Computed example of a mutant assay.
Amino acid sequence: MNPEDIEAIERRLGYIFKDKSLLLRALTRKAAAKEQSEQGQSCEDQEVFRTLGDAILKAILTDLLIENGCTTRGSITQKKQTLEDEKTLGEMLRTMGIAPIVGIGERIIGVHETTYALAETFEALVAAVYKDGGYDVITALVTKWFSNLIN
C-alpha cells in the first residue's frame, strides 16, 4: 500500500495514525497475510484486532445508547444489535470510501465487496485506532460515525 492510499484512508476515517503498521494490520485479511508469509515476508493479519474492535465497539455503543435515552437492557441490546450488524458496519466503510481498499492481497477475488469482510475490517479499524490513539479518541470517532444512526 502506498503512502497516498494510507493518507486517503486516514482522511476518510478522520484519524492520523502515529503507527501506520496498525492501520495496515487492520486492513490485512488472514489469507493475504498467509500469502505474504509464504513469500518470506512478515505480515500480521486483522484477526485479533477484529475481536478487540468488536468488544470496544460494543462498549462505546452501549454507552452512547444509554446517553441517548435507552433505559432498559432490552432496548439497549435491540438497538445495539442493529447498529453493529454486518450490513451497518459494511455500509459505514462503503460510505467512508474505504471499501475498495479492504482485503490487501485479496482484492482480485472481490473480498472488498463482501459485507462480512467489510464489517470485520470495520471492527479491526476500531481496534487499530484504539491501540494507536486510546479509548477517548476511538470513542469520539465512533460517536461521530454513529451519531446519525443513534439520534
Rank of each mutant, 00 (worst) to 15 (best):
G14N: 04
G133F: 04
Q41A: 09
D132S: 09
E120K: 15
L89H: 03
L13F: 07
R50H: 01
Y130A: 13
I56A: 03
A119E: 01
A31I: 06
K87L: 12
Q36G: 10
A33Q: 00
T51F: 13
N2C: 09
T95A: 15
V129C: 07
E120S: 03
K79Y: 08
T51A: 11
T139M: 00
D19I: 11
R107H: 14
T62Q: 10
L57D: 00
I150P: 07
D132H: 05
E84T: 08
L83T: 07
A127L: 09
E10W: 10
L57Q: 13
I56P: 01
A32R: 09
D5E: 14
G105A: 08
E47K: 15
F122W: 11
L83W: 06
L93N: 09
A99R: 12
G74P: 00
A26D: 02
L125C: 06
A119N: 04
E91W: 12
N2D: 15
R25S: 00
I108P: 00
V111N: 01
F17I: 07
T77I: 04
E67D: 08
I60T: 13
Y130G: 12
G53Y: 08
T88D: 01
F122P: 04
K144A: 14
I109K: 07
R25I: 05
V142W: 12
T77Q: 10
Y130V: 08
A127T: 09
Q46Y: 04
A99C: 14
P3E: 10
G40K: 00
F17M: 05
D63N: 14
G105W: 02
I98H: 12
P3Y: 09
F146H: 06
A117Q: 11
L23T: 06
T121H: 14
A128S: 01
F146T: 09
A32H: 05
N148Q: 11
E91L: 11
L83D: 08
F17K: 14
S37N: 12
E67A: 14
I108M: 01
E86Q: 06
I6A: 00
Y15C: 07
A55Y: 06
N2Y: 07
A99P: 10
R50G: 07
F146W: 12
S75W: 05
I66C: 03
K20N: 11
V137Y: 07
L13N: 08
L23W: 10
R107K: 15
S42Y: 15
K58R: 13
D63F: 01
L64C: 05
D5N: 15
A26K: 03
T77F: 15
A124D: 02
K30L: 06
R25E: 12
L118F: 07
E35A: 07
I9G: 12
N148H: 14
D136C: 00
Q41E: 10
C70G: 00
G103T: 11
K34Y: 01
K79N: 08
F49Y: 15
M96N: 03
I9V: 13
R12L: 01
T51N: 01
I76K: 04
L23C: 04
